[in-house]
Design a protein around this nucleic acid. Structure first.
Length: 514
RNA sequence: CGGGGAGUAGCUCAGCUUGGUAGAGCGCUGCGUUUGGGACGCAGAUGUCGCAGGUUCGAAUCCUGUCUCCCCGACCA
């Protein structure tokens, strides 16, 4: 990046990503995505092309989270992309929440017109009697199906998940973090009792927290959203909030208790045990490709992405070093042999993902590509190693210059432990960072002062008993929001609310967000 | 919708004020030297200068119209 080159030169610093996080965080984020070859902007406004290395991250997230959902009794299903507009008229609150960002399909045909200059103009034709909305979320159409499927309490619970794309016509987009079209899973469940639905919401909230922590190595703060930040139509929204390296918050997943609001609007009713007609209690919950954006912002450094081993597209990348033609075949054979042995090992139950990079490129070029892509373990094997029986081991949680020559057999014995060490280490770093940037605040002056700091401020935990209006006023003033009312901190010691002074046992976490 | 900016090679952009054969860097292809910290030399390929009109002997350059994109706001459950 020409703007930053001179700065870097002056400092004698050499980083793979220019600018660095410190110089320009948003630009750094975009460069990491580009250099790691994760995704690019497409010609379709606000939409991205997810490239193989980025899509593999999503596939691994998908596959691993899917296990959690299936093991807790959920089943996958698929519903249409296009939703009849009448569904949006039934459930006013949720529909209004999304109304301003809905893409609408109004025609079902194109008419070709030949122009004089030989070109063709396509015009929409065949206007639909009733337009379709491209799903911004599927509550309405899944609710309609639930209404058909639910007759007796014996039909409940319905525990449905779908992996799908949705579209929200956002004003401003950012790769992975907010795109007009994105991939996600959306769970929708219906239950006989309120207690069961609340339990489901909490179960998913816990699964999200555990999954993101143990698989993506991102420590989150779980909690409940305040009224102002709640999903429209929900009675309660639970969230996991991640802190990324510029100390902003990312809402990484949400689980909603919808009460009977949706079931009443859509008539999801059943005959109960007491032979009366009742409305079901419903939930919905989701995580999206935003997790990948969160992952980048949480873990990547000035040399590019650091992929947590559990979801890394390739966990071990082997780079043959072939300076001489006469040893080339032997070196490549040794690399293939090592890859073959590694691929028989299992990391968290999955066969190891191992790649041998045989491209005819400069060794340094290849090495730095894999650094930027964040492959957890890099192995170099050259002619010298053939004789010594060693391999050159490099880890993405260590400096790119760090290397260790270890016996091949030793490496084969240690590789699973090394991958787990890397997984643990990046979680540890992210946890230290998060905890260093959350502080308690009981004083209103200090609270105001905190948000006007020149450096991006971290999060504040305050006693809170304010109203929705009071929260929104504070939010507007400082461009902040209550990220959540953190779990396990809502029934603590009584303290005066930071704004109103009213005694409260509840705490709120405040921060700036993406 | 308000304010600002930009459309020229795959990418980033110069050239436009003052009209005269279409340019650079990176990337790409080939050959050679290289390869364990991001290589180098030589040779080569690549364009409807967003689109449509106009002025002119001649337009990337001047004029008019039009489309698109980007940035700052508003928006983002």
């Amino acid at each position: 990046h020409p703007r930053y080159t001179s700065i870097v030169m002056a400092k004698q610093a050499k980083t793979a990503i220019i600018p660095t996080r410190e110089q320009d965080f948003p630009e750094w984020y975009q460069q990491v995505i580009k250099e790691a070859d994760l995704a690019e902007n497409s010609e379709t406004r606000g939409c991205m092309v997810i490239k193989p290395w980025g899509y593999a991250l999503w596939e691994n997230i998908q596959q691993q989270l899917d296990q959690y959902l299936k093991q807790t009794g959920h089943q996958n299903a698929y519903f249409p992309l296009l939703i009849p507009i009448k569904h949006f008229e039934k459930e006013a609150e949720c529909a209004e929440g999304f109304a301003t960002e809905c893409a609408v399909v109004t025609h079902h045909r194109l008419e070709a017109k030949k122009n004089d200059d030989g070109t063709t103009t396509m015009t929409p034709a065949g206007k639909l009697e009733e337009p379709y909305v491209i799903r911004p979320t599927s509550e309405t159409i899944i609710g309609a199906a639930f209404a058909r499927w639910t007759e007796s309490y014996r039909d409940l619970p319905l525990l449905i998940n779908q992996w799908a794309n949705v579209m929200r016509w956002e004003m401003r987009t950012r790769l992975f973090l907010r795109t007009a079209e994105f991939l996600w899973q959306e769970g929708h469940t219906a239950h006989e009792t309120k207690e069961q639905a609340i339990k489901e919401t909490a179960l998913i909230h816990d699964i999200y927290e555990e999954f993101v922590r143990d698989h993506l190595a991102i420590p989150v703060v779980p909690g409940e959203k305040s009224e102002a930040e709640r999903f429209p139509g929900a009675e309660q929204t639970f969230t996991i909030e991640a802190m990324v390296q510029d100390k902003k918050a990312v809402q990484a997943g949400t689980s909603h208790f919808l009460g009977q609001n949706f079931s009443k609007a859509q008539d999801i009713s059943f005959t109960g045990r007491d032979n009366t007609i009742q409305h079901a209690w419903t939930t919905s919950w989701g995580v999206s490709t935003r997790l990948i954006g969160t992952l980048i912002m949480a873990h990547a450094d000035d040399d590019g992405l650091i992929a947590p081993p559990r979801i890394a597209p390739q966990q071990v990348v082997i780079v043959p070093v072939t300076p001489k033609e006469d040893t080339r075949d032997a070196v490549i054979a040794a690399c293939d042999e090592l890859a073959k042995e590694l691929r028989q090992l299992r990391f968290h139950g999955e066969l190891l993902r191992v790649h041998v990079d045989k491209r005819d490129l400069n060794g340094g070029t290849k090495k730095w590509e894999w650094v930027k892509k964040g492959a957890p373990v890099r192995i170099e094997i050259g002619p010298r190693d053939l004789d010594s029986g060693k391999v050159c081991l490099q880890r993405r949680d260590q400096a790119p210059t760090d290397k260790a020559f270890v016996a091949k057999e030793e490496f084969l014995g240690d590789v699973l432990a090394i991958l787990q060490q890397i997984q643990d280490e990046i979680l540890r770093r992210a946890t230290v960072f998060r905890d260093a940037n959350i502080e308690d605040c009981n004083d209103l002056d200090a609270f105001h002062k905190h948000w006007s700091a020149s450096e991006q401020p971290g999060w504040l935990v305050t006693p809170w008993a304010g109203t929705r209006e009071e929260e929104e006023e504070l939010s507007k003033t400082h461009k902040i929001a209550i990220r959540c009312l953190p779990k396990g901190q809502q029934d603590g010691e009584e303290a005066p609310c930071v704004l109103t002074g009213k005694p409260t046992k509840a705490r709120a976490i405040w921060g700036r967000s993406y």
